Simulated scan of single mutants.
Amino acid sequence: MMMNHKETIWRDAFGLDDLSEIDGNFLLAIAAAKKEFDGYSQGKWDLKNYIIWLRISENREFVSISFIPKTDEMVGGIFFEIPCGGLYKYGRGYQFYYRLEDTELLEVTGMR
Rank of each mutant, 00 (worst) to 15 (best):
M2L: 09
M3N: 03
N4C: 06
N4I: 07
H5K: 05
K6Q: 07
W10N: 06
D12N: 10
F14T: 05
G15L: 11
D17N: 14
L19E: 12
S20H: 12
E21Q: 08
D23T: 13
G24T: 10
G24A: 13
N25T: 13
N25G: 07
L28V: 01
L28N: 12
I30M: 15
A31C: 07
A33P: 13
F37R: 01
F37L: 01
D38A: 15
G39C: 05
S41N: 13
S41G: 01
Q42D: 02
K44A: 06
W45F: 05
D46I: 04
D46K: 08
L47P: 05
K48Q: 10
N49M: 07
W53C: 01
W53F: 12
N59R: 03
F62Y: 10
S66N: 02
S66V: 02
I68L: 15
P69R: 11
K70N: 11
T71W: 04
T71A: 14
T71D: 04
D72M: 07
E73M: 10
E73Y: 15
M74N: 14
V75H: 06
G76E: 13
G76I: 07
G77I: 05
I78F: 09
E81K: 01
I82K: 10
C84F: 12
G85K: 03
Y90S: 09
R92Q: 06
Q95S: 12
Q95R: 15
Y97K: 01
Y98T: 02
Y98S: 07
R99D: 09
R99H: 11
E101V: 13
T103E: 11
T103D: 00
L105Y: 11
L105E: 12
E107T: 12
E107L: 14
V108Q: 10
T109Y: 06
M111E: 04
